[in-house]
């Protein structure tokens, strides 16, 4: 444990040291125990791709991968993640080299305002990692914990479905 003097509040704030790997980069940071993973990613590391929607685990916008499984980053403290491997939407692709999922969301109109998209993409990635050829029903089940207020979901389902087949094609060919 470490102490950081905080002039405004008077007493020193307790922090804990964490070593994490985020998108392949190793970081060592001292964090307040109450710092949420979502705020750690956005404010400490500047990875603002992870969106903060409801902050109580309902909307799924802040979903990221921890050690290969999605978590709601607003429901996990950074202080719990010593030695964890974290992947955010920034790990998927770049503007000129989109991940097949990102490309499919673009082509199938899987987003409008884009707020839910990072969470949708990470949840879809988890699904395809475990089940490379999902049915539409399996896709519906997988994204049932992610809210979208623009698309009506059908285009998101089509995007994930088409990305799965695109990715399979690439693997098979």
């Amino acid at each position: 444990m470490n102490k950081i003097a905080n002039v405004a509040e008077g007493p020193a704030i307790e922090t804990v040291q964490i070593n994490v790997e985020v998108n392949g980069v190793a970081y060592t940071r001292y964090v307040e125990p109450r710092l949420l993973l979502s705020d750690f990613l956005r404010q400490e590391l500047g990875l603002t791709g992870t969106h903060v929607g409801c902050e109580h685990g309902v909307c799924g916008s802040c979903n990221v991968m921890v050690d290969g499984s999605t978590v709601r980053s607003c429901l996990v403290f950074a202080s719990q993640l010593d030695n964890a491997k974290i992947e955010t939407v920034e790990s998927l692709g770049r503007v000129n080299a989109l991940h097949p999922l990102q490309k499919a969301f673009w082509e199938k109109h899987g987003l409008q305002c884009g707020f839910c998209t990072p969470g949708m993409l990470m949840t879809a990635k988890e699904l395809l990692d475990r089940n490379p050829r999902p049915t539409r029903d399996e896709i519906r089940e997988a994204i049932s914990g992610n809210l979208c207020r623009c698309t009506g979901y059908q285009t998101i389902i089509e995007a994930i479905y088409s990305a799965a087949y695109e990715m399979q094609g690439a693997t098979n060919g």
């Binding site: 999605t70 709601r72 429901l75 089940e141």
Partner: peptide
């Protein structure tokens, strides 16, 4: 019970 991301944790 719950959604996949909640069940993970």
């Amino acid at each position: 019970i719950a959604h996949v991301t909640v069940r993970n944790r």
